[in-house]
Design a binder for these strands. Structure first.
Lengths: 169, 169, 169, 169
DNA sequence: TTTT
DNA sequence: TTTT
């Protein structure tokens, strides 16, 4: 089925310093927990209420992993754009479990720092080499500071998440 | 935390006729399964590959539930815009489980039919009454055919999903 | 045509203190200029380049206008979600001109402050009254701090922009 | 300014067969007019009203241009994701004019056919070659059927729209 | 005219 | 576990 769209956009704060793991063939994978929250006023009591939602964000893209590794710390405010993916795994009792994550991989994935820390050029400059080699025109235009696609000279792949991790969230 | 965004946009096909349940106080809740898929070409074999992702969409909004009830059938192509929400529940062994769903509730939620079936006006006309009462201006403008907010005269609420269902996905 | 979507999402900085005008019947309209920019590295010279894009954002929604009036200042970083609208007007030579704007009006419009200034509750609390009156459930849930829909008790309308302004951008 | 986002998402119908032009160095540029519309009910008269908005979409991306050329016809329903760009030009009196367009170029641009015509593989297969060469992993994964980034082996560039066209919309 |  |  062509004709489908699977897109998640989050603006929120990172709950803890990201973990970066590596696949057996050396590619990095970053895990982030991002909080979004909504506030509203209880119409009976009039008091303010808040609900926080935690999202697991998994970055398969090499370029974006570098950005995460260098700049993203606990507390950072991020814009991320990725896709929803539900992964099946077995718990210790051998039962099927499912975890849904926001995956940044391949195209149309983006990660942008929104609080000023760490955007002194690192995000984009990190990809210069890889990208240049796949772009035949005079300008290396089109590289938003940390779009997933930027790392295309270097990665992008690893579709099946066959790491030996059993940790769901 | 103000300053956060939690948005999911899907365009995909409905896997089965939707189920509509009701809360104890009578509000409807619709459950949909929506498939999105991506195709790509294996760079070694050259053959075409496809991966389908299934999403659980839960519609709490009364107006959108009516649209779902009347128009959405198995196979329909939909645009939905909602938010990510992870719900905790206990399985039969008493173990904590988590299910992540795309929730259409309150503001900034939308459901639009993309294949022509059922958009003969039903979606929007269903809300006329409720909306009119909360809008003091001459035109009842601003109601996209089936935006979640449309049902504001009638609903929108039910934040805590305290239905007695144990079904995760 | 049901089955359509018209959505703009911007994260950028406000170029000048917003102007707030009023319609003849007293409703506020806020105008913002928001800058987004992209940086990339020129692949020949290796030097860093940047392109800034300026967007005109017009806020018709009363609730969001209050947020703008109170909190949005030159330099603020905002997330806005609205729709594209092209408006026709005549210049002094009587020639047709067109201006395209990002309009925040009615549903699915949002404005969120991303730099901490001014989100001490004002954004959402400003609407409590209006909203409460159009929601029959126990909780006034669903009001993101400054979603356009929040002002539904008070406004939302003014579809045709028949203000007597001739200023395009 | 890193930390910015400029995104437009449209679902609508194409108003006329697309025009494809070429730059002096041979790269294609496709122009589309896409209509989105909203319907609502006038709260006084009770009658149904509709407003259609026309958007100019300019496709700089070679891969997406091929998709447009082969599959997009008048009446087609499309999902497009691109960015807002305002272009300055001079009219015949030498006056400055501005036209705002939805530009599909580089990253995070997508065009997807939503009505079944033309998604028999063409969209993605068209890019196989170009992409493969910039991806070192086993699978050519990550190519949504017609994401802009797909054409990275072949194009992507042309930032400054220095065509000799004077046609605004 | 913003921001980095 | 973040942030306001």
């Amino acid at each position: 089925m062509a004709g489908s769209v699977n897109k998640v956009i989050l603006v929120g704060n990172v709950g803890a310093d990201p973990e970066i793991r590596r696949t057996q063939d050396g590619r990095p994978i970053a895990n982030l927990r991002i909080a979004t929250s909504e506030t509203w006023r209880d119409r009976n009591s009039g008091e303010r209420r808040e609900k926080t939602e935690w999202h697991t964000v998994v970055v398969f893209n090499e370029g974006l992993c570098k950005v995460v590794e260098q700049y993203v710390k606990k507390g950072a405010k991020l814009y991320v754009e990725g896709q929803l993916q539900t992964r099946k795994w077995q718990d210790q009792q051998g039962q099927d479990r499912y975890s849904t994550e926001v995956v940044l991989q391949g195209f149309n994935s983006t990660l942008t720092m929104l609080d000023g820390r760490g955007d002194g050029g690192g995000a984009s400059s990190g990809f210069g080499g890889g990208r240049g080699s796949s772009n035949d025109y005079g300008d290396d235009y089109g590289a938003p500071s940390s779009s997933s696609s930027s790392s295309r000279g270097g990665g992008g792949g690893n579709f099946s998440r066959d790491l030996d991790d059993d940790i769901p969230f």
